[in-house]
């Protein structure tokens, strides 16, 4: 592709927002400190100046009200709101609007409503932000019918998936890993759409399949690169969206390699990791050559101390160990 410029994950998201705001008058943003301040993580910098307060709403701390406004606006078909929930952890104060209202309206209304809106939120551990500012939580949202759930890992995925999410006619929960905001990568300047429901094989391999999301994609790739030198060939798949899920790509890979490690930063129980393990057990049982391994945090809240947090988050060492155990 020649010389594709490199920009950060945060800039890539900003470009997607900028692009959709410029192309579609119906797109507006609501959130806390997204205007003058440019977003807690700088993601929305410059958008207020460019689009003004009638498109970029700096809101008081009233997340339920804000999402509710976004839903109402979407239901009328008059707007396509992008709501920024500062931290995904704050879903607790506005979950009703997310899962009882946005997610179910179309169904409860017999297919009459279209709730075209995106809920963007920062998630993820590694910043010493403790138990109420570090969760990723994509598993929980994917548990609830009616929501699409996207967890991008690379800058280019973030841009392409966000454009698709804003253009999608359903509520999309778009979780941005805050540990990745500064990560740079090649991102095409043109608005390239990445469809939801298409996994990306980040690295091809034949001995073992790793399914990983968000920041765990990088750690898995690190392990794959290291072990390749020993002749171990690891395939790393990033599903990119949890709902819809590109089951085929995952199942085909497991059938090819016969081995699966799921690496995820969300809690372990009733989770994305167990979900993928269940798919492997029910659809690839014959091809599996060894037990499925799950590399996740323990089922505890996220500890604050850097000494503890780094143990809590799945590490490169743990991923490597899991791979070796089933080879």
């Amino acid at each position: 592709m020649g010389m594709v410029r490199k920009i950060s994950y945060a800039q890539a998201i900003n470009e997607a927002l900028d692009y959709k705001l410029s192309k579609d008058k119906k797109v507006i943003m609501i959130g806390e400190d997204i205007g003058t301040f440019g977003g807690t993580f700088g993601v929305t910098a410059g958008l207020l100046d460019k689009y003004g307060p009638e498109r970029i709403y700096d809101a008081p701390i009233a997340e339920s009200g804000q999402i509710g406004v976004a839903i109402g606006a979407a239901a009328t078909g008059l707007l396509r709101p992008v709501f920024e929930l500062m931290f995904i952890d704050f879903f607790g104060v506005c979950m009703d609007q997310i899962y009882n209202q946005a997610a179910k309206m179309r169904y409860m209304f017999g297919g009459k409503a279209k709730i075209s809106m995106v809920i963007r939120a920062a998630g993820g551990a590694g910043m010493g932000a403790a138990a109420q500012h570090s969760q990723l939580l994509h598993s929980m949202f994917s548990h609830l019918p009616g929501l699409k759930v996207v967890v991008p890992s690379t800058p280019s995925d973030a841009k392409g998936l966000l454009i698709s999410s804003i253009e999608d006619d359903d509520p999309v929960v778009f979780i941005e890993h805050k540990g990745l905001y500064a990560v740079k990568g090649p991102v095409p300047e043109e608005p390239q759409r990445i469809p939801l429901g298409v996994a990306d094989v980040k690295r091809e391999g034949k001995d073992i399949t790793i399914v990983a999301t968000a920041a765990m994609v990088y750690k898995s790739l690190e392990v794959a690169t290291k072990l390749y030198k020993e002749g171990i060939s690891i395939e790393v798949i990033d599903p990119r969206s949890i709902v819809p899920l590109d089951e085929n790509t995952i199942v085909n890979s497991i059938k090819k390699t016969g081995r699966l490690v799921v690496v995820d930063e969300d809690y372990p129980r009733a989770s994305f990791a167990t979900d993928i393990a269940a798919i492997a057990a029910s659809k690839c049982f014959k091809e599996l050559k060894s037990p499925v391994k799950l590399v996740t945090p323990p089922a505890t809240p996220i500890p604050f101390s850097p000494a503890l947090e780094k143990e809590w988050i799945p590490s490169v060492e743990k991923i490597e160990k899991a791979v070796r155990e089933i080879l």
């Binding site: 075209s116 699409k148 006619d169 939801l196 429901g197 819809p244 899920l245």
Partner: peptide, 8 residues
């Protein structure tokens, strides 16, 4: 859902 997609 309103918009169909690839994947499940």
């Amino acid at each position: 859902f309103s918009t169909s997609t690839k994947g499940v």
